[in-house]
């Protein structure tokens, strides 16, 4: 294939990927009257941030953004801690029934969220926890996927390192924190990226459990916005742009690692 043709195809692909984002930005800057204009106006007169102002009036959007960040960070941190600790137990602490318990973890990996939705909802309602941060976080605290991923990483840490630490009189907690954790940093980073993205994008469970806009996460806030401003696409696109920007910034910094993590997941 010719070099020119290849560049042409690759660039076309890139434009297809970028255009929806660009169009969202343009639409969000379009004044109210001109949004539904046909033919579409690429350089609308009176372009400005009016739609963003209306967005902030309609919903507590800063609060919603902060909720998403807060829930994402806490969820990721909790998953990392609980999964790494359990992974250490499964990799380094023999106990009766360990294999069977690990099989239970693996089995939960296959059970999709929608199977759990009704009982989880009832559980939260029974303890009067609907519409709380805790309810959104609860199903993400333990991660079977994380335990599986990190256990593999810990198993690759040579035993000699732990044994040297034991000779120095270190207990398991110290070995875990000072020997094992630093050595599995790449796996921890991979898992953190997956965990944060899952929390940031999650829609079904927050949709079921949250009612008040002040607890909403971004996907919920956007869906609510769409319900209220059905034809005012400039406001809806303003909300979309606002919710893409934070993850985009994160992506720009961690881009290589994100892509490497995904590529790694397919090579087994």
């Amino acid at each position: 294939m010719g070099k020119a043709l290849r560049y042409l195809l690759v660039t076309t692909g890139a434009l297809v990927m970028l255009f929806p984002f660009a169009w969202a930005v343009i639409t969000s800057l379009t004044p109210d009257g001109a949004v539904l204009a046909s033919p579409p106006d690429f350089t609308p007169e009176g372009a400005g941030l009016a739609a963003y102002a209306r967005l902030l009036e309609a919903l507590p959007f800063w609060r919603i953004l902060a909720n998403s960040v807060w829930i994402g960070v806490v969820s990721t941190a909790l998953q990392l801690i609980t999964s790494a600790m359990a992974a250490y137990a499964f990799a380094r602490l023999p106990f009766p029934g360990r294999g069977a318990l690990f099989a239970v973890y693996l089995a939960t990996l296959m059970v999709p969220l929608q199977v759990l939705i009704v009982p989880l909802f009832i559980e939260m309602r029974t303890f009067d926890l609907t519409d709380t941060y805790f309810a959104v976080l609860a199903p993400t605290i333990a991660s079977a996927f994380g335990v599986f991923l990190l256990r593999q990483a810990i198993q690759q840490v040579p035993r000699e390192f732990d044994e040297a630490a034991v000779l120095d009189g270190a207990g398991h907690l110290r070995i875990f924190v000072f020997v094992v954790l630093p050595l599995i940093r790449p796996a921890l980073a991979t898992f953190a990226i997956f965990g944060f993205m899952a929390s940031w994008n999650s829609y079904l469970w927050p949709l079921v459990i949250l009612r008040s806009p002040e607890f909403f996460t971004l996907p919920l806030g956007l869906a609510e916005l769409h319900g209220r401003f059905t034809t005012e696409w400039n406001v809806v696109m303003a909300g979309s742009v606002v919710s893409v920007v934070p993850i985009l910034i994160l992506y720009l910094f961690a881009q290589k690692h994100v892509i490497a993590s995904v590529a790694q997941s397919g090579l087994k």
Partner: peptide
């Protein structure tokens, strides 16, 4: 090492599975 993961897994996955 185990309980921080096992307790939430039981409460928010295993019990709901049985409940479902």
């Amino acid at each position: 090492f185990l309980l921080p993961s096992l307790v939430p897994l039981t409460l928010f996955t295993l019990i709901p599975m049985a409940g479902s």
